[in-house]
Design a binder for these strands. Structure first.
Lengths: 206, 206
DNA sequence: AATCATACATACCGGTTGGTATGTGTCAAG
DNA sequence: CTTGACACATACCAACCGGTATGTATGATT
């Protein structure tokens, strides 16, 4: 808030770097990576190109840092944590989806999932980007898959399903729902699609 | 008279316009609309800016024409036609998905669904684009919804499901599967995700 | 034969982009 | 007290962008 006072007296490189990451995250979320303007990011932060290129070698490195240092922690907190160690993944997933339906993040409905946006845009364009994004996506699927496996052992999940394929489909369908809601620009569509996903979860019960 | 005999040197405005649309479609499919380069489109077609701006007032109009005159007919032929008039939509959808799994379009796996790509990119950025894309998406959902309704009346589909919400989810999940397969860059993931979608279809049977 | 709209090609423009080279103030170490 | 690395700011650049203004060959109309 009072950055201009601090920068006049004290150096805070970590804070500067984080400010760049946050502004880059917002700019990329709005316009995508390729259309994201470095000038806009600098205007938002009140910094200059000197600061940006001191902390990051180029635009791509900034984008990759956003993936690893912003998107990954957010996703871990929102989607991984609620499933970690749960032996009733279907109940946990249902609670998670219903919480999102009850209190939808307006940024997600209007701008979509940051991870999915970048995957759609960058996967065919930049292999390094694709690998980083795929690793994050893969981690997500693995978290769901592991939870489903524990659910099978605990008797909550049908024993004959392929947990990995199911987890892949679950995450894919969720991203699909978010994406379509973004195009429709309505929380009603978002809720409806999440509701159908909950219905699908019911079919996985033992 | 006898226009079809005219050589390449004579003027063929319809052919020129179609060539621009085809090249624009390919360029947009690869790089997205915002990153699509008009210069590249002109290089691909061997035309110049004079031709482009004679047929289209600006880049946006070209993009919208691609949606209406290229993507819409393709989608109608591939996804709408197989469901039109069918009283057994689950069987028809299953056949459609299994055909795609058996013979996957490499361009779709590597570059994604052109409609979905544009929806993800342009919906938050350009309202006119969003409306055109949403109309097309809505038509798709309505085709599936109408088919599911006929399936209910014919006794193939469970009578207690919300056909419109189900259709919305089906299309969303399909787009999600395509998107995730694009990031994974593997036909195996594509097949697996489509297989799970077929499994979901089974749960809709009466 | 003269006219005129069509269907392009050519040349050019202002603005923005990512990126770089250099300057400057701060601070910690020697 | 000096030195030097760090953390930026300033100024600048070539490349590319979408868009425009103008020129020109063609074909149809009158």
């Amino acid at each position: 808030m009072y950055d201009f006072l601090m920068s006049a007296t004290t150096k805070a490189p970590d804070h500067t770097r984080q400010a760049l990451l946050d502004a880059a995250f917002a700019e990329i979320h709005r316009h995508g990576f390729q259309a994201a303007s470095l000038s806009q990011i600098l205007a938002d932060t009140g910094l200059t190109k000197g600061a940006l290129y001191h902390h990051f070698p180029d635009k791509r490195a900034l984008g990759l840092a956003v993936v690893e240092d912003v998107i990954r922690p957010r996703l871990a907190a929102m989607m991984f944590a609620p499933l970690a160690g749960s032996d009733t993944p279907l109940a946990a997933l249902r609670a998670l989806l219903e919480a999102k339906a009850a209190d939808p993040d307006p940024w997600v409905v209007t701008l979509g999932c940051p991870l999915n946006n970048l995957m759609q845009e960058m996967s065919p364009v930049d292999e390094t980007f694709r690998l980083h994004l795929n690793a994050l996506f893969r981690d997500w699927v693995d978290v769901v898959s592991a939870a489903l496996l524990r659910g099978q052992r605990a008797g909550e999940v049908k024993p004959d399903i392929d947990v990995d394929a199911t987890a892949f489909f679950l995450v894919s369908a969720l991203e699909g729902c978010v994406g379509m809601s973004k195009n429709t620009q309505s929380v009603a569509a978002y809720r409806g699609c999440l509701g159908q996903l909950v219905n699908y979860l019911e079919t996985l019960k033992a």
